[in-house]
Amino acid sequence: MGNRLKGKVAIVTGGGAGIGEAISKKFAKEGAMVVVAGFPEDPVEEVAKEIEEEGGTAIPFTADLSLLANAESCVQLAVKQYGKLDILINNAGTFPEVNLLSDFSEEAFDYLLKNNIRTAFAMSKAALPELQKTKGNIVCAGSESGALGIAQNAPYGGTKGFMHAFAKGLAAEQAQKGVRCNIVAPGPIDTGWTHKDTGPMDKQMEQMVTQGTLMGRRGTPEEVANVYLFLASDEASYVTGAIFPVDGGTLIAKGPAGDQAAQSMKVQPDGQLKLKHSKESHTSIRK
């Protein structure tokens, strides 16, 4: 166990699978008391139990966090259980459909707005009064697509562009209250979203996402969680309103750059976390 977040209380939305699981377990490993939050269908209870079995401290919270009343209940649980709230991780999101805009369903668009935007709005609104007391911070899930856009999923990139501007706006207005806010912008990560068998991508798109990185591979959830850890910790005390890409060089890649990467770059690092739910996410598909 580390101590970079010792004594801190954190809520991680979408905390039961994919990148969220890695964040929850990384934070607990570094001493945080974690509220693992997500839909009832997500394995949040399992992740909280696994954290406890590894010597960490965590409790689950299951609800639709796009509803302000549920978001407020989540924050109240953290304060009731642990006495305060220091960190909010707005990680929850969805990747429901891959389609040209002319064929993109209105149902999928509404689902994106609900899970990628409204959840972050509701959770931030509910958490800010407590974060102002502790001089805490928020870290939001952006995306390289929020800067570049993404073909065959323009609405998804649009929601992430909103998240980038939303977090910067929070940073600007909340500095006077002592609250920092930053953005982590992943590229293709090794979760259910980027595999054709577990997400909406087809075989061609699955290949393109790795070819479009300088490193020629997907990132791991733990590699993303490492950056969340830094931004949420006191080590980032002079960082606010910043976007941190964790994309293997996607933003500066030209063409199929991944094909030219050194073999050593294409090998995922061995992680320290025991991640069991990397490919699970009920928010990756519409209900």
Rank of each mutant, 00 (worst) to 15 (best):
D110F: 09
N137M: 04
A127Y: 01
K125E: 15
V139S: 08
I138C: 05
L101A: 10
F95H: 03
N116C: 09
V139K: 07
A147S: 13
F109L: 08
I89S: 04
L77T: 00
A78M: 02
K135L: 10
I138F: 03
A147G: 10
D103T: 07
V98S: 05
A122C: 11
V139I: 09
G136A: 07
N115F: 14
N115P: 01
G93N: 09
G93E: 07
I89L: 05
L113F: 11
S102V: 06
M123G: 12
A92Q: 14
S105N: 04
D103V: 03
F95M: 03
M123Q: 08
L85P: 06
N90E: 05
F95V: 01
D103W: 14
A120P: 00
N115A: 07
S102L: 03
F104N: 12
A120F: 00
N99D: 15
A126N: 06
V139A: 11
G146P: 00
A127V: 00
I89F: 03
F109K: 06
L88A: 12
A122S: 12
N137D: 09
D110S: 06
E130Y: 10
I117C: 07
E97M: 08
S145Q: 13
E144D: 09
E106M: 13
A147K: 14
F104P: 05
N116S: 14
K114G: 03
G83I: 06
Q76S: 15
T134N: 11
D110Y: 02
K125M: 07
G83L: 11
K125L: 10
F121I: 11
A127T: 01
D103A: 14
S102W: 12
N137K: 05
Y82P: 00
T94D: 07
M123P: 04
F109Y: 11
T134Q: 14
A78V: 01
P96T: 08
L128D: 10
A126P: 04
N91I: 03
Y82I: 01
L77K: 08
I117E: 09
S105T: 03
A126L: 04
M123T: 01
I89R: 07
E106R: 15
F121E: 13
K133W: 04
D103P: 05
F121H: 08
A127H: 01
K125C: 13
S105Y: 02
P96D: 13
F95R: 01
S143R: 14
S105W: 04
P129N: 10
S124I: 00
V98N: 04
F109D: 02
Y111I: 02
G136T: 03
E107V: 00
L88G: 06
K114V: 01
A141L: 14
C140G: 11
V139D: 06
V98T: 01
T119D: 02
K80F: 03
G136K: 07
N99F: 15
I138H: 05
S124F: 00
P129A: 13
